[in-house]
């Protein structure tokens, strides 16, 4: 009697544990998020998602901002530019981070664009390549597949292998916009899913060319000059180097309260001057209009 009672208790407990485990995944977040803290100046939550290229910049912004405003919680997730624009359009997050301007499908969602940073791109090649400067025209030729051998642009007789990003990538969209200006990329290219993978592919494949966000380019590859201009932050500020996009933070309607404060903080001189250049981006404020 006693024994069977115990057994039953065990079974009930077991069932409870199993079902708790099964359902623990749901709803946990809401509980954590809804615990409000005492008010001082600003309070609330700021949620952002989107571009992974902007993540390294926004993480320090989040930390510094939360230190200044103790009652504000900032959540920043990745997911990609389109995820960000999608989620802010649906109202799932307060801020959608993106490397690209709004595509047409998003134009009617009332999103407001905040350009927070300039993201420069560089063209990189494998180290065995003898060419160190390409004209825009030559790069367009390579990207569209009209130029397929390095000897056509003054190098040795070696096939050109284009390694770059997927069709859904913000980086690719930026290059298509500012370099190709509407022409189509050749499909005859190897596609990698991140800046790091492109870098590795170009570094290990003879005759390879690709593009990455400037902060990613390291000693394993050769950075090309464009139209005789060597890449530098100053060259972009002076308007001599044209391959860059903007880091956008989109909000649905004009931002208010903590969301506005956070975007203002990211765009403030204090933050822009301290972090932006250190991370290889360029402050928007320095751009000549």
């Amino acid at each position: 009697m006693l024994f069977s009672g115990k057994k039953k208790l065990l079974a009930v407990l077991g069932t409870m544990v199993v079902s708790t485990m099964l359902f623990a995944g749901c709803g946990g977040n809401d509980k954590a998020a809804s615990t409000d803290k005492a008010a001082t100046d600003l309070k609330g939550k700021v949620s952002a998602s989107g571009s992974t290229a902007l993540l390294p910049l926004l993480k320090p912004a989040q930390e510094a901002f939360e230190k200044e405003h103790k009652d504000v919680t900032v959540n920043i997730a990745g997911g990609g530019s389109f995820t960000g624009m999608n989620q802010v359009g649906e109202g799932a997050v307060d801020i959608g981070n993106s490397d690209v301007f709004l595509p047409n499908e998003y134009k009617d969602k009332g999103l407001v664009d905040h350009k927070v940073v300039v993201e420069p791109f560089v063209f990189i090649t494998n180290k065995d390549n003898k060419v160190s400067n390409l004209s825009t025209e030559q790069i367009v030729g390579i990207l569209t597949g009209k130029i397929t051998n390095w000897k056509e642009v003054g190098g040795e007789d070696k096939a050109i292998t284009l390694i770059h990003r997927a069709k859904s990538s913000g980086s690719r969209a930026t290059i298509a916009d500012v370099v190709l200006k509407g022409q189509q990329f050749t499909d005859n290219a190897s596609i990698q899913d991140s800046n790091g993978a492109v870098l590795k592919g170009v570094a290990t494949t003879p005759g390879a060319i690709g593009y990455v966000d400037a902060p990613y380019a390291d000693k394993s590859v050769k950075v090309l000059d464009m139209d005789g201009v060597k890449y530098s932050a100053q060259a972009i500020i002076d308007g001599k180097y044209h391959v860059y996009g903007y880091g956008h933070m989109y909000t649905k309607g004009e931002p208010k309260g903590a969301v506005k404060a956070f975007i203002d903080y990211v765009m403030s001189d204090a933050f822009q001057n301290e972090y932006v250049e250190k991370l290889g981006f360029i402050p928007v404020s320095k751009m000549k209009k």
Partner: peptide, 22 residues
Amino acid sequence: PTSTLTSNIVIEMGNTPFGSAW
């Protein structure tokens, strides 16, 4: 070089708007 169904899904899903034709 070519693509497979799986490799294309994993490469493109991250930046593809959910619910779009893509």
